[in-house]
């Protein structure tokens, strides 16, 4: 589904190279965890995959479902099935959550040449998906993420994911700011979306999240490179030994 080859990227304005040649292949149905210390390039990788401006790819390629992902604009990537669950979901005053979901879903459907969903159908869909995530109807009446607690914001991200049904989900530090109960609810929501035709990249600093979302593969990102890959047991090693070994290696 996703093939990243020798990806080098820098911050467009400052010119600092952050990714120094990333290779990663993610197949449909797989869940990959990317772990690494702060500043290793985890979030940059997620932004480059989702098409945020401000980064420049200087070398390498990203192929998604056989097409050059980097050629697509952010909204086209989303319509093609790439979804980024933000570490810090953005509050957008004045845009009602339900309206936002409707415009997002129908923009994607229109782009893919599918029929748009009517408002009652959409409301039914959203209500159904929000119940299992413990999202109250009042939250949907509020503007996007405005006044939501940290846990509510993360749940709202998972709700969007459930409604938009992407093929490739990138979860950026989804566990940050969550207590254990909220983490469990969010993880259950994510696990419910695991399917043979969907892939997930779970970016996290801590192993804790991976107790709930069990990955097929774990990669260690340090200073812009993947320095080790393995099975889920690698995450447990990291939890025990920390990132020090990798940081010394890279230095």
């Amino acid at each position: 589904m996703l093939e990243i080859k020798n990806l080098h990227a820098k911050v467009a304005e400052e010119g600092t190279e952050i990714l120094h040649g990333i290779d990663l292949t993610v197949n449909a149905g797989e869940v990959h965890a990317i772990m690494g210390p702060n500043g290793s390039g985890k979030s940059t990788l997620s932004y480059i995959l989702s098409g945020r401006e401000g980064y420049e790819v200087t070398e390498g390629s990203v192929t998604y479902k056989g097409q050059d992902l980097l050629q697509l604009e952010a909204y086209e990537r989303a319509a093609a099935g790439v979804f980024l669950a933000f570490q810090y979901p953005i509050e957008i005053p004045g845009v009602a959550t339900m309206q936002f979901l409707k415009v997002a879903l129908n923009s994607q459907r229109k782009y893919r040449g599918e029929d748009e969903l009517s408002t009652p159908d959409l409301m039914r869909l959203v209500r159904e998906k929000s119940t299992s995530l413990g999202i109250k109807p009042e939250m949907l009446k509020r503007p996007v993420n405005v006044g939501f607690s940290g846990g509510e914001k993360k749940r709202a991200e998972v709700l969007q994911m459930a409604v938009l049904e992407p093929s490739l989900c990138i979860l950026d530090e989804t566990d940050s700011g969550l207590d254990i109960d909220a983490l469990r609810v969010v993880a259950e929501g994510v696990n419910a979306l695991r399917s043979p035709d969907r892939a997930m990249i779970v970016i996290t600093h801590y192993q804790r999240l991976l107790d709930y979302i069990v990955p097929d593969k774990v990669h260690v990102l340090s200073k812009g490179r993947i320095v080790n890959s393995g099975g889920k047991e690698l995450a447990l090693e990291l939890e025990k030994d920390g990132y020090a070994a990798y940081q010394d290696d890279a230095a």
């Binding site: 989702s50 098409g51 945020r52 401006e53 604009e73 952010a74 909204y75 990537r77 989303a78 319509a79 979804f83 980024l84 933000f86 979901p89 953005i90 957008i92 005053p93 004045g94 845009v95 936002f100 415009v103 997002a104 879903l105 923009s107 994607q108 782009y111 503007p143 996007v144 969007q160 938009l164």
Partner: peptide, 22 residues
């Protein structure tokens, strides 16, 4: 704000219109 809306599949012109109206 613009990137958040676009990352959900909303084209830039529509995203701008939504934010201006908001």
């Amino acid at each position: 704000h613009l990137f958040y809306l676009m990352s959900r599949g909303i084209p830039e012109s529509r995203a701008r219109a939504m934010l201006i109206a908001a």
